[in-house]
Design a binder for these strands. Structure first.
Lengths: 250, 250
DNA sequence: CTAAGTAAGTTGGACTGTACAACTAAGTGT
DNA sequence: ACACTTAGTTGTACAGTCCAACTTACTTAG
């Protein structure tokens, strides 16, 4: 990092911070964090979006965007804390699955100047906390969002969906989308919703049960037919990685 | 992103950029890009590091660090271009495998202030271009570096190694570490070096050959024993993802 | 009280690809 | 000619999925 010679003619007096360190008098990109928050609602994969404010000189007024915002160098110790704060502010959820997705930075993605965003993606259960008033869930039929998003958030969302689908093939990630107690057919349905294809019942059960990620509770889900065993996530479990993917179609 | 109300008492006059957009008068983190560059040299996995300058007020003077530096908002169109520039400046290589690794940002990782780095990782062949004078290859025996690195670059390197090893289990990534022409035993040796464990010869060959990623050239590698078929990467091939990992030990 | 219906969960044979190990092939050096 | 070494193949065992049929346990209609 740093320490290289730089052209002095870059102009602008952004980023003046000449304490004991020199060489810092050059323009700095804007730094933001955005979070792609997924949940299963109404048997479909949905993403949480917030509406942009309509204020003076706001980019993409009233457009829909990923929850996020500038890094606050006073409040945020690090990027993950910043992402967790955004998530908490919009959903009330505090301890979900939160993973870094990647970063997007360019001269043109924000009309206010060179900017870089650090994107995270989160999985939360259906029954999680209170939604912020400017936030709304959007379904993703066929893994796509109908609407255009502000900034390059469409690209970020597409990447998040791709990553989610990809990882669901060989990990236990969907477990984080489940409520506290669930049945194996429930879990299988969530896998199928995310992957958008049916899975083999017996292979699915064998795989999940031998992964040591869930444990039965002493209750059954009752319904109009044969009751199903309820399970819960073993607490403190990291996601499990399987040595095979679910066999992909063709 | 953005558009939220902010405390005005953050002080500092960094990031003044009051054109048609308001709300931008708050301190901005430093933005850098770092690249973890891997190659196989002397039958072992190595990483390229550069020595920090010793100048006035430089952090970690003469320490070893990942190649990288500040984003130059005048030169760099986007983050990937910036990473490619760093790679080119240090190694002369222009078109290798370059993948985003993640980002690290916190108040404390750089003594000059709140900073965020966008880390990339690159795989280049042994026989690639000319090394910069301040750069040196460091071996990674057992997937570890002996020396301590500047900033949090030790963490970043460890993450890169982990990601590399992980992906080598189920992808064709090692192909990008190979010279233009190579034999299957050569390739297997590289897999084994990265994974630090032996692989099954017949299963390896079946897998690689059925992945349609390499093609034979009309030559054999001659040596003191049976000649081996030479192959090259099919050009323009994206990395291949296998549906199983190599069966992990125990 | 029984029969039909439905979803949960199990079982077994076919198939795919790895594990392990022995084997054949093609060159060199003595 | 023979040993030696590495390239590459072959065959049996095994693990886990695929596919399909089956049993189990409950509700509801008649």
């Amino acid at each position: 990092m740093a320490g290289e010679t730089r052209s002095k003619d870059l102009g602008k007096d952004l980023g003046k911070d000449l304490g004991k360190f020199g060489q810092l008098d050059f323009p700095r990109p804007l730094t933001t964090v955005d979070v792609v928050i997924f949940a299963i609602l109404n048997d479909s994969l949905q993403v949480l979006l917030v509406q942009r404010p309509a204020g003076e000189g706001e980019p993409f007024p009233l457009g829909w965007a990923l929850p996020g915002g500038f890094v606050d160098v006073a409040k945020d110790r690090d990027l993950a804390a910043c992402a967790a704060r955004k998530l908490r502010e919009k959903t009330g959820v505090t301890s979900p699955y939160l993973e870094q997705l990647g970063s997007w930075g360019s001269a043109t993605r924000d009309p206010r100047g060179w900017s870089a965003t650090h994107a995270y993606f989160a999985l939360i259960p259906d029954d999680a906390g209170e939604l912020a008033p400017d936030a709304r869930w959007f379904p993703l039929p066929g893994g796509r969002l109908k609407d255009k998003l502000a900034f390059d958030h469409g690209d970020i969302l597409a990447t998040a969906i791709q990553r989610l689908r990809n990882k669901v093939e060989y990990t236990s990630l969907p477990a984080y989308l489940m409520p506290a107690e669930f049945t194996l057919p429930d879990l299988q349905r969530v896998y199928e919703i995310v992957l958008d294809r049916p899975l083999e019942k017996s292979a699915f059960r064998t795989r999940i049960l031998s992964a040591d990620m869930i444990e039965p509770v002493a209750k059954m889900r009752r319904g109009p037919n044969r009751p199903a065993q309820l399970y819960r996530l073993k607490k403190g479990r990291e996601p499990v990685y399987f040595v095979r993917t679910f066999n992909p179609p063709e």
